[in-house]
Design a protein around this nucleic acid. Structure first.
Ligand code: MN
Ligand code: MN
Ligand code: ZN
Ligand code: ZN
Lengths: 133, 133
DNA sequence: TTAGTAATGAGAATAATAACTATATATTCA
DNA sequence: TGAATATATAGTTATTATTCTCATTACTAA
């Protein structure tokens, strides 16, 4: 599985497997720490380079945030996320796409909407229970 | 207008006036360049310190983005934004708050939603016209 | 007027990510 | 097969927005 002009190296293949094998929406550094256990001298630059390449190929998805590290997601199907401000975990949300809000903006303002970014913040189910104790 | 333990310096007051006097959602550097024309030796650190202070006081709003500078908004009322990927301008959207989607996440997932972030990207009205020529 | 407090300007520090570079693999095809 | 060529790598340095540090200055209120 390789696009013309690109090679599927053991590093890239490992990085892809790590992303596909977790549901934790990991950061580049998480991927780096895991990858080192299989390829001890892999470099952080290689991790970033391949995460970008994989995202450009559409095999993974990058979620970036101001002030903190990007997270990567092996599930490239459309879905939204909830970030817990207490534990920091990112959870998938099984909501369908709100495409109607794009149309609303196009109709009301006349701009041409290509995408929207929607994410939720708060306290997750688990942290809510812990707070009560 | 000063909160106990804080002083309204000429720097802070100027920065607030600059933010309130524009609709362009400026960056810290834009504020810095404008401010220097009134207080030539104002420092960029002072601009950042005051922008943060004003945002904490709720007098302005900070909008941050991964990979590019934060923008500041003197309009602290609830409203969404559209960013043009062609000219880079940020436009206000007169949409009412989508509070129902917070409830949807709470009901479906059991997390406690404190806020959501929703922004739109695409090509603005003006850039669309220029593209056609 | 003076002691105490808060803010400033200048510059250094930070942190995530990208760019650079010499070396090492992979792929192509003679 | 084995050069010749193309791509990726490890290790390192650079970038960029923002924050931090600290000596100095400006308020504030007794
Ligand atoms: Mn996900
Ligand atoms: Mn606005
Ligand atoms: Zn949590
Ligand atoms: Zn535009």
């Amino acid at each position: 599985m390789s696009v013309a002009g690109t090679r599927l190296t053991k590093q890239k293949s490992l990085i892809l497997d790590l992303i596909l094998g977790t549901k934790c929406h990991p950061t580049a550094d998480w991927v780096y720490q895991e990858a080192r256990q299989h390829i001890p001298d892999i470099s952080l630059g290689t991790v970033y380079r391949n995460l970008n390449a994989l995202a450009n190929q559409g095999l993974i998805r990058e979620m970036n945030y101001a002030g903190s590290s990007s997270r990567y997601d092996g599930d490239v199907s459309q879905h939204y996320h909830f970030t817990c401000q207490s534990c920091g975990n990112v959870f998938d949300l099984p909501l369908e796409a709100f495409t109607m809000i794009d149309n609303l903006v196009e109709e009301q303002e006349g701009h041409s909407v290509e995408a929207h970014r929607l994410e939720f913040y708060g306290t997750c189910k688990t942290c809510k229970i812990e707070e009560k104790q």
